[in-house]
């Protein structure tokens, strides 16, 4: 059982990973911004400017596909920031850090932003009266189902990301413990985890790189689709 008797205010270990990610991303984005300011708009883009342009085009294209050109201008920066932060934090497991997305507080916060944006768009499109009336559609007893339907994206999006990252991390931990125990039987090298080095890279490629990037893609796709559903059709 969890021991609740000695409650102390302590920093969770993910806080340090978050600080590292934010500072590295800030530095990187600052460098890109400085390079763009310096660059000649008529010349062929190269280096950091090119990376920034490719990323911007990718994200605005993805947003445009799901939301329409008008809303994409407003939402593309948020989507691009979310994707960058989530992709980097999911890939951080490769360097041996604790992934911030393996902490439920972080994923809940990310999903909460999306949830608030969905409700905000709904209210903005329908007006507050229409928004409140939407809960009693098609007839009043449906209010229970509508409330749960409204809250469902918040829970499913946060738990999906958290579950994927946590299960990947836990499986990797179990693999390392198991291979360490197994390589204890090999003579000569003794405590050196030899089998882990052979087995782990493929699993890291799946759980950290593939799974992490796919979950990032799914999160931003679902965000754009959910918000795009609430927008009026063009």
């Amino acid at each position: 059982m969890l021991n609740n008797s000695d409650k102390v205010i302590s920093l969770q270990i993910e806080v340090f990973s978050i600080i590292i990610i934010t500072s590295v991303l800030l530095l990187f984005l600052f460098l890109i911004g400085r390079a763009i300011k310096k660059s000649d708009p008529l010349a062929k883009p190269k280096g950091l400017v090119l990376i920034g342009m490719i990323y911007y085009q990718m994200m605005s294209g993805l947003t445009k596909d799901n939301m329409g050109a008008k809303a994409a201008v407003k939402f593309a920066p948020y989507i691009a920031t979310l994707a960058l932060y989530m992709a980097v934090s999911n890939l951080l497991g490769l360097l041996g850090f604790n992934q911030p997305t393996g902490n439920y507080s972080v994923t809940l916060a990310l999903a909460l932003i999306t949830f608030v944006l969905i409700q905000y768009t709904k209210i903005k499109v329908n007006g507050f009266g229409g928004y409140a009336k939407g809960f009693f559609e098609p007839f009043p007893p449906f209010v229970i189902m509508n409330v749960f339907g409204t809250l469902a994206p918040l829970i499913s999006m946060s738990l999906r990301l958290f579950g994927n990252i946590t299960s990947g991390g836990t499986i990797m931990m179990l693999v390392y413990i198991f291979t360490e125990w197994l390589s204890g039987f090999i003579p000569l090298i003794g405590g050196f985890n030899f089998i882990g080095i052979v087995v782990a890279p493929a699993l890291h490629a799946y759980f950290d790189v593939f799974s992490g990037l796919i979950q990032t893609y799914i999160f931003i796709m679902l965000t754009t689709i959910f918000i795009g559903n609430e927008l009026p059709q063009e």
Binding site: M1, L2, S156, L159, R160, F162, G163, N164, T166, S167, T170, I214, Q215, Y217, I218, M221
Partner: peptide
């Protein structure tokens, strides 16, 4: 296909999460 498969996978991930919680918490 990848998007749909990954969304379908969510259900299994929930089950796995509950299994991990059971094992490590209790």
């Amino acid at each position: 296909l990848i998007l749909g498969a990954a969304i379908a996978e969510t259900c299994a991930i929930y089950g796995m999460l509950i299994a991990f919680l059971l094992i490590f918490v209790f």
